[in-house]
């Protein structure tokens, strides 16, 4: 099973899940992301799940874990593009995405991540480029 590619866009890491994930691939993605956040000093992680037909408890837990890991590494996670049927099913299943921010689409998700860049104390005090990494 191929790994899910992680793209870097400024200080944001972008992941678009396009295939039905095997549990192993999901765990791999979680590890890869932790690695890349530290490597790149990314401040935001954007995960596009518009390609996912279901989010079961395993994938739900993966999303929560990624959000938790990035928070510890000082990055914000936004999950975007959840389909209505998936959201309804998750509510019925009793699945919550603890600590995960959500947005309707990639554009709105990026908008949520951007303020963190420009208002970071470093950027304000030292006038450093937020996209230093």
């Amino acid at each position: 099973m191929d790994a899910v590619p992680i793209l870097k866009l400024g200080s944001t890491l972008l992941v678009s899940i396009q295939v039905d994930l095997q549990d192993q691939t999901a765990l791999q993605l979680q590890e890869d992301l932790a690695e890349r956040i530290t490597q790149t000093g990314a401040r935001g992680v954007l995960i596009d799940i518009s390609g996912l037909e279901i989010v079961d408890s395993f994938i739900g837990r993966m999303l929560s874990s990624i959000a938790g890991i990035s928070r510890v590494l000082d990055a914000t996670t936004v999950v975007v593009g959840m389909r209505p049927a998936v959201a309804i099913t998750m509510v019925e299943l009793g699945l919550q995405l603890d600590g995960v921010k959500t947005a309707l689409d990639v554009e709105k998700g990026l908008r949520m991540l951007r303020p963190a860049d420009t208002t970071s104390p470093e950027a304000l005090l030292l006038g450093l480029d937020a996209d230093r990494a």
């Binding site: 279901i54 989010v55 079961d56 408890s57 395993f58 049927a85 998936v86 309804i88 099913t89 299943l93």
Partner: peptide, 17 residues
């Protein structure tokens, strides 16, 4: 319906695991 499909597939995923 799309929602019922999604629910059934999600349940199947949980049970298969």
């Amino acid at each position: 319906s799309l929602v019922d499909q999604t629910k059934l597939v999600t349940a199947a995923s949980e049970l298969a695991r």
